[in-house]
Design a protein around this nucleic acid. Structure first.
Lengths: 219, 219
DNA sequence: AGGTGTATGTCGCAT
DNA sequence: ATGCGACGTACACCT
């Protein structure tokens, strides 16, 4: 990784256009060739950047970065304060835990948290338009498609609507109804879901985890 | 901005949990206190990070970053290869051009670029499901909902469809039709829009800018 | 402070 | 490659 601290300005032409006025900034070039211009503010997002794959042509006082999509970042370097390079690890080496996948696993094992009497038939049930998170049967034996989100917003309702539309055509499933399950359901998503006859279930991740632990201890 | 190149490992507990195995990485601390751990790969996104506001407690061999939301990042530092600090600019100094907001402003002022005879009633017209970009009346006085995107793809058509569904229920608006306006409209989006009776309008940002400049000069 | 929509989103996985 | 869905999305803007 190359770390260049320099007074510079820049222009970007690509998905949009931008111009960056002169200032002291950090230019970061990673091993894969991606380039980022950082100010001393703004979370981890750079002011300007070009992701790999790209080509960096370096001149005395200017860098021109182009990529196959036709985007172009030009950096004018006025004064170099530091220019160092280090060999860093190329692996991310990161292990994640507790995202939507976990919620889906917990709810598949404890579908009663979604609705009393519900039983899991299959996770990731395939439709032409993509996988339904959980296919269930309710207390009456009718099919129920469950879409799960950490945060339930409108996109998730649209997704479930598409799946339901598709599943209704399958004589083995129809009539199938939908339940939208999330730890939090946003008001607009609730309005849309209910206008389409889709039920909403807010579930507690903490309660699910507790119950799962108890369950594991018993069996 | 502090730039520390070090062999380190890390754990994060917050919105999820993650563990990062030992490796040589860049630790970046910006003036606002945010912390990022970068590997030599992966666009501009760090492996781990903590955005401001947060608190960094620095020990001999470990950094503990916590924030008011209860998130916690702990970094164990095994070997320091470089530790420098620079005063960078705090301003972004960036001017953007050609984002959706500009397009919306231009089209609201020149709705005839969307369709001849169209007149703007209101920008960001509120519905229960979110704001319609521009509400217009056409040459016959009928309501027209205009959804604007830089790049017109399927999501935008879905969005406009939802708004229209909602607006039809309002006796003051119905019958309302939709127009999907973008600088580029993808083929799939066009097919979907037209199958739903939504018209498509490809507009030229350059032409809009020119016209706007002429307009400003005249008035 | 909380909700909503945009993003040069990025990233991973499937087709 | 391209499409699709998740993301510790971040971020600006509005109530």
């Amino acid at each position: 990784m190359r770390l260049l601290v320099a007074r510079c300005s820049a222009t970007y032409e690509g998905r949009l256009s931008s111009t960056l006025s002169s200032g002291v900034r950090l230019l970061m070039v990673k091993a894969d060739g991606c380039v980022a211009i950082h100010a001393d503010i703004g979370a981890y997002k750079p002011i300007n950047w070009m992701n790999a794959p790209n080509t960096l042509i370096e001149d005395e006082a200017s860098w021109v970065v182009t990529n196959p999509k036709g985007e172009r970042l030009e950096i004018l370097i006025e004064e170099v304060l530091q220019d160092v390079a280090w060999e860093l690890d190329l692996e991310r080496g990161l292990v994640l835990d507790g995202v939507e996948k976990e919620l889906q696993e917990l709810l598949a094992d404890h579908p009663d948290h979604i609705e009393a009497g519900l039983e899991t038939v299959q996770r990731e049930f395939r439709t032409d338009l993509g996988p339904v998170d959980i296919l269930c049967r309710d207390a009456d034996g009718a099919a129920v498609a469950v879409e799960i989100k950490r945060i339930g917003d409108i996109d998730g309702v649209e997704q479930l609507t598409r799946y339901l539309e598709r599943m209704q055509r399958d004589p083995l499933l129809t009539p199938v109804r939908g339940i939208f399950a999330a730890t939090v359901i946003k008001p607009q998503a609730r309005v849309l879901a209910e206008s389409r006859g889709i039920a909403c279930a807010e579930v507690s991740l903490a309660r699910l985890r507790d119950e799962d632990e108890i369950h594991l201890r018993l069996f």
